[in-house]
Structures are given as C-alpha cells and as structure tokens.
Design a protein around this nucleic acid. Structure first.
Length: 290
DNA sequence: AGGATAGCCTGCGGGC
DNA sequence: TGCCCGCAGGCTATCC
C-alpha cells in the first residue's frame, strides 16, 4: 500500500522511465476516476508534442506537468490503496483496471491501474492551481516537517497519537504501516493523547520519521501486497517490519507478545511493554482487544 | 467543531 | 476443488 516512500520511489522511477520521451497521446477509460476543474479532453492537447517534467510529490500524491510550457495543465495522481503507475512496452497489453494512460513517441505507455479505485486523478489548469486548491489541505511533508510544527499540531488535540499521525492535514505521507513502525521505534503508545506528546517526543518522532522513511526510500519502498514501482518491481524487503503485521508475535526488543487492536479503523500493532503508557489501559477498555 | 464512524471497492487467503 | 466470507486500508461524507 503506497505511503510516502513508495510514492517517492514511483516518482523517481517514472521520471527516469519517461526522460527524453515525448507525449503523443493518451486515454481516460473511466471518467469517474477523473476529478478537478480541468477536464482530461481539455488538458491532453496541451501535453501532446511535449515531454513531461519530473513529477513533484506532496505526501502520497504526485503531480505531472508537461515541459516547455510555463502554465502547463497539471494532473494529480493519488494511488490510494491499490493504485499503480507503471511503464508498459509498446507490444504489451495494459492490465485490467487500467483507467488512464499516456502514450510516448517510442510507443511505451505510462498507465494508472487501480483495481479498488480508492485512488484517483485530478486535472488542474496549472501546478499552482493544484497546489492552491488541493495540496493546500495537506500538512507539511513527513520528510520535512519540523518538531515545532508537529508539536503545535499535536498539542491541540486529545485524539490518539496514531490517529493524528494518519491525518494528512497534520503531516502528509504517513500511512498505517509507517505509523506503527515509527511509534514502535520511538517507544510511544499509539493511544497517547496528542496533547500529552512532549516537545522532546516530537523531536524524537521527527528524527525517527526521517530515518525510517529515508531507509525505506533507499530500499525502493517496502512491500506487502499491491505495490510496485514504475518498472514493475516490488519494493525491497530490506525494511523488516518490527510492528506492522506482527500482532501476537514476539517483540524484537523485549520478547513480549505484541498487542493488536483497532485504532482509528486501522489494525494497530504495538508492544504493550516497550510502548506502554497510562492511557493505554483506559483507551482499551472502550475497545475490543483482539 | 472536533472526533468517531460507515462506506467505497476488489483481490486474496483461510476455512469448510 | 470451489465457494463464501472476512479482511486489507486512504480518504470522504456523515453523524454525534
């Protein structure tokens, strides 16, 4: 499931795979996957005959523009749960559930494929419009947010730390996997109320967040099920999960059995011994622990 | 108005 | 073998 490192890996591999190529056409085969205020049919003529710029990323979203045109229309791609952006050879058939693609002058295609359709596409008249109308709702990117900003965001809420970190308007790019891994790494309970997280903890969170995400990017993204980069490669398994998906297994630090419960509608795994806090028991009384 | 919660959607794996 | 059910989850809409 694409989170920040996977999306960043896609961004880099798409950039490399489309470099030097010119857009000659494309197709949108599922109109309901397209949103925003610039229609696909109005956008594509402005792209034909031009190469793509290197895509930009905000959190888990990518933006594409065409080169050689200062006010090129922009397409925002959000992969959602099961979305993929892959290059396909001229003779290859596009996979099922391919909703949109671009064709390049060498016959290759860049295709957006999303079986579950939790992802989507948004067209805007230019990159600035995309940023103003869509990305303005995002918090600072998880790779660049500072401890002060994070602390401000958390201090105003009593909701659980995990729920807050999943909130893209607070910090953009984290998903279920990396939040569980991050909280395990810094030994904070996912149930800690946001406003109980100290400034010092925020400094540790920011440091650990950058380390974790950068390691995952260096490994080509972590992979569980659906994710592949633009070349169709699964992410490296160099990043071993220490919390995510390990409910009931032994903690790699203290050998205690890892706890698993639902928090913010997400399966959440943590070590009740290493990450325990006074709020946990109270919070869990209201929840059913699995 | 913050915060919790349903619903969207398909593929896959476990159980029978 | 094959079917059915439950689960996976990012985000939006809706309700409390």
């Amino acid at each position: 499931m694409p989170e920040l490192p996977e999306v960043e890996t896609v961004r880099r591999t798409v950039a490399a795979a489309t470099r030097g190529k010119t857009v000659i056409g494309g197709a949108l085969t599922r109109a309901d996957m397209w949103n925003g205020d610039c229609a696909w049919n109005d956008l594509i003529p402005a792209w034909v005959g031009r190469p793509l710029n290197e895509p930009t990323r905000a959190g888990k979203q990518l933006a594409f523009t065409a080169a050689g045109n200062k006010r090129s229309p922009a397409v925002c791609v959000h992969l959602g749960m099961s979305g993929r952006l892959c290059m396909h050879q001229p003779q290859g058939t596009l996979p099922n559930h391919t909703h949109w693609w671009l064709t390049f002058d060498d016959g290759t295609k860049l295709a957006f494929t999303d079986p579950r359709r939790f992802g989507g596409l948004w067209g805007f008249e230019c990159l600035e419009a995309l940023q103003a109308k869509r990305w303005s709702a995002l918090g600072d990117d998880a790779l660049t947010i500072g401890p002060a900003k994070l602390h401000r965001g958390l201090s105003g809420t009593r909701r659980a730390l995990k729920a807050a970190l999943l909130d893209q308007s607070l910090v953009a790019g984290l998903g279920n996997i990396y939040v569980d891994e991050l909280l395990f790494a810094v030994r904070l309970s996912p149930w800690t109320p946001g406003s109980d997280v100290s400034r010092k903890d925020c400094e540790r969170l920011v440091r650990a967040m950058r380390t974790l995400l950068q390691k995952a990017i260096a490994a080509g993204g972590t992979t569980l099920r659906d994710y592949v980069d633009a070349d169709g490669n699964a992410g490296g398994f160099a990043i071993k999960h220490r919390a995510y998906g390990r409910g009931g297994l032994k903690c790699t630090r203290c050998r205690a059995a890892l706890c698993s419960a639902s928090l913010a509608q997400r399966t959440t795994v943590w070590c009740g011994h290493c990450q325990g806090d006074p709020h946990q028991a109270l919070a869990l009384e209201k929840k059913e622990v699995l």
